[in-house]
Nucleic acid binder design. Sequence first.
DNA 1: GTTCCGATAATGTCTATACATAATCGCGAA
DNA 2: TTCGCGATTATGTATAGACATTATCGGAAC
Lengths: 241, 241
Amino acid sequence: MKEDPAGMKHLHQRIRDDIEARIMSGEWAPGHRIPFEHELMAEYGCSRMTVNKVLSTLAANGLITRRRRAGTVVAEPSSQQAVLQIQDFALEAARAGVEYRFKILSRSVEPIDVAAAQRTGLPAGTQMLCLSTLHVMDNVPQAFEQRLINLATVPEAGTEPFKDDPPGTWLLRRVPWTDAEHIVRAVNADGTMAKRLQIQSGAACLVLERRTWQAGAFVTEARITYPGDRHQLVGRFSPVA
Amino acid sequence: MKEDPAGMKHLHQRIRDDIEARIMSGEWAPGHRIPFEHELMAEYGCSRMTVNKVLSTLAANGLITRRRRAGTVVAEPSSQQAVLQIQDFALEAARAGVEYRFKILSRSVEPIDVAAAQRTGLPAGTQMLCLSTLHVMDNVPQAFEQRLINLATVPEAGTEPFKDDPPGTWLLRRVPWTDAEHIVRAVNADGTMAKRLQIQSGAACLVLERRTWQAGAFVTEARITYPGDRHQLVGRFSPVA
DNA sequence: GTTCCGATAATGTCTATACATAATCGCGAA
DNA sequence: TTCGCGATTATGTATAGACATTATCGGAAC
C-alpha cells in the first residue's frame, strides 16, 4: 500500500500541494468552499488526522478559513504586505569582502522627552541610553543611526563599550525579540546629515525607524538614515511557506 | 483528568506558551537544546503526538530548529526583517471618510524593453499592458503608479477599462498571489514627477517597486512613487503568530 | 589512528478512535 | 410568522500505538 521509494512524496505534502495549487491557480477562488475533511479523507484514502493537520496548517498560514459546522473556505486575499530584509552591515561587508567599521559619535544617558515617551509608551523621564552611530564601508559612510535603549529593560547596556559590535547587532544577540514596529520614510538630508553621510544637502534619504518590545517591555528605538543613492530595502515573500 | 471549564486553556496552547515564554524571556538562549519529545511528554503527561504538533508548529514559525537524532534547539535570531503594510487607497480613504479617485494618465500595449525583461525574467519583446495612474485624495495627489501587466498571464486586463477600481486593486481581486518581490528606495523628485505630485522639484519621494508572480508566471510590476512628506510605510510584526 | 558499519535514539508520518465544541438547520411552540 | 431549542454536523483536541527516516555514536576491522 505504501510505495515511498519511487519519487513519492508524503501524503501530507501531496494533499497540501494539491490544495495550494488549486487555490493559487484560481480554480478555487476566494470564498469557495473546499471539500470537508471526510471527503478529502475518502479521496486520498487516509485518516482524518492527516487531512486535519494539512488544513490546520493552511489555516494557520492564512490561505483558508475554517469554521465549525460551516466548513472550510478559501480565504480572501489579505491586505498587501511587503517583507523587507534589514541589512546587517558587518555581515554584508564580510560576504562582499569589503572593510566595515562603525564609529560611535555620541553617547549619553538621558531621560526621554515627551515625544519619545508618547511613541514608546514609557512614562516620561525614563532613563535611556542614547547613541549616535555612523556605519562605514570602505571608508564610505553607509548609514547614520540614532538609537535609544531602555536601561530598565537592558541594564547591562549601560556599561557595554560597544567595541566589537555596533549597538544593533549587540542587542539582537542579547535581547530576545517579540514585537517590532517599523516605519519607512523618505526625507531630504539637512546640512548636518549631508555632512555626516558625505552626500549633497537635500539628497533623498531612506529613514527606517524600528521600535522593539520584549513581552510588552520597551527595549529600543532605532532611527537609521541611509543615503538614497546608495541603499534600498529589498524583500521576497511568498504567502505559502 | 480534564477540567476545561475553569479558565484552563488547551494543553497544546499551554505547552506552546510555556516554550515561547522561555525562549522570548531569554531563559533558553539561541542554540539551547530543548527537552526531547519524550521528556515534554512526561512533564505534561500527554501523548507524543501532542508535543510533536506543538514543536512542529514552532519549527514552522522559525522559533526552533529540529534535527532527527540530534534533537531540538532554539533557533538563531533570523536576520532582521520588517513587515510593512501596503496601503490600499480606496480602503484607507473610505475608512478616513475622505474622497478618493484615480486617473489613468496613459495606457498602451508594448513589448517590454531589455531592462524590464531582465528584471522580470520574461523573454524580451513580450507584450505588456503599460499603465500610468495618479491616485488622488481630497484633490491632493497621493501617489503616482507606473504598472506593467503581463498580457500572457492576465489576458482579460487588455480589455478591462479600469473604471471602478484602479489596476492594483483590480489585479489583487482577480489574480491569485504566490510570490512577490519588493524594493523600497528614496529618490529626489525630478521636474515631471514634482509636477504630477504637486511637490517641489527635488523633494524626497518614497518609491515602492513590487513584482509579482503566479506559480512562476510573471504577473505584474508596479512602481509607486509617494511624496515623502505625505506618506510612510508602517508595519507591526511579531515572530510568533 | 582511521575508516566503516551497525545499533541507537531522536524526529517524521500516519492510523483509528474518542470526546469536545460550535454553528447551523429544522422542528415545534407561541 | 417568528422565536427558541434540540439534533446534527463539521471542525478542534487528544490518545496510544506503529513504522519510517536519519543523524550520531561507538566499536570492530584495517
